[in-house]
Amino acid sequence: MMQRLLLLAALVAAPLIALRADAPHVYAIRGARIVTASGAPIEAGTIVVRGGVIDAVGASTAVPSDALVIEGAGLTVYPGLIDLGNTRAAEEPAQPAPEARTTAELERWKRGQLLKPQARAADVVKVDDVELTRLAAAGVTSVLALPWGDVISGQSALVNVAAPPDEPQIGNIVEPRRGLIVVRPAVALHVSFPGRPRAGGNAYPESLMGVIAFVRQAFLDAQHYSVARTEGARTEGRTDGARRLQPSERSSERLPLQDDPVLEAMQPAIDRKMPVGMHA
């Protein structure tokens, strides 16, 4: 059965194989008790992993001649676990508050720190991180990398804790490794409600009630942006005989819609195409 690295079996209590450029690409775990994702356990079976993907699994699976064999007698192999709330994978340093000359400048900066739906954990996730690689020793092969920050912090990503070995790059520009571990770049939009946001400065919001009001207003703004954008697209398109709205009937004429990357990034959540994770 073909299974992606998301279900890569982790061998409990056995030494981990170091990921290195000269490591073999075929492994066989032989004679172990195999707990499958569905179905009854296999009391003594073999798993063949080829190029980071489970190629075969079963009680009578043959060991390829080019495989590095791991003797699993007396041990248990199970599908990789997923940590659904990891802040290490996409951790970023906190931004110090600027020397603002006015309260408006400080509030504008703080708004940018607390309202970051466009931030993607997939863009900053750590590759070959020692702490993440150690999770494999506990059977955790994938994590939901949470975006760093408070309030509307951004979009999480499903990533593997360890990248496969590098392929030889002869005559080619070396490709980035981040894409090797990202399984799904955008999983959910995350919202938290801290009593006092970590983003410093004596600017709104400074309390839990202020944070709740801030989040509510952000989603209302995103909804208004969606309505204005849809209305603008409808009135600027072909009418095909339908009556075109008059300027007095069109909010986009009274208040021209300005491109806003922040509110634009919230549209998948507004359209119910992306779940929203609330952290109390």
Rank of each mutant, 00 (worst) to 15 (best):
A203N: 06
Y204P: 03
V183L: 14
I173F: 12
I170C: 11
N202Q: 08
A199I: 07
V187F: 00
R198G: 08
G171F: 12
S192M: 03
P205C: 09
V159H: 03
I181P: 00
G195D: 05
R216I: 11
N160I: 09
P185F: 05
Q169H: 13
A222N: 14
A218I: 13
R196I: 02
P168L: 11
V183A: 08
D221R: 15
E167K: 12
P197M: 01
R178G: 00
R216F: 08
V151R: 04
R216S: 13
Q217A: 15
I181G: 01
H224K: 14
A188Q: 10
G171Y: 06
Y204W: 11
L220T: 14
V159S: 02
G210R: 12
L208R: 15
A186T: 09
L208M: 07
P168D: 14
S207H: 09
G210L: 10
R178E: 01
H224A: 15
V151D: 04
G201K: 12
V182A: 03
V191N: 05
S226D: 14
P168N: 14
N202W: 02
L158D: 11
P165A: 12
I173D: 06
V215E: 11
Q217V: 07
Q155G: 01
R184G: 01
S153Q: 14
V183M: 00
N172C: 09
Q169G: 11
A188R: 07
R216E: 15
A213D: 15
V174M: 09
R177W: 00
N160M: 09
R196A: 05
Y225N: 13
Y204V: 09
I212K: 14
L220C: 13
V161E: 10
A163I: 13
E167W: 03
V211S: 07
V182Q: 07
A222F: 09
F193H: 07
I212H: 11
R177I: 00
N160C: 12
Y204C: 07
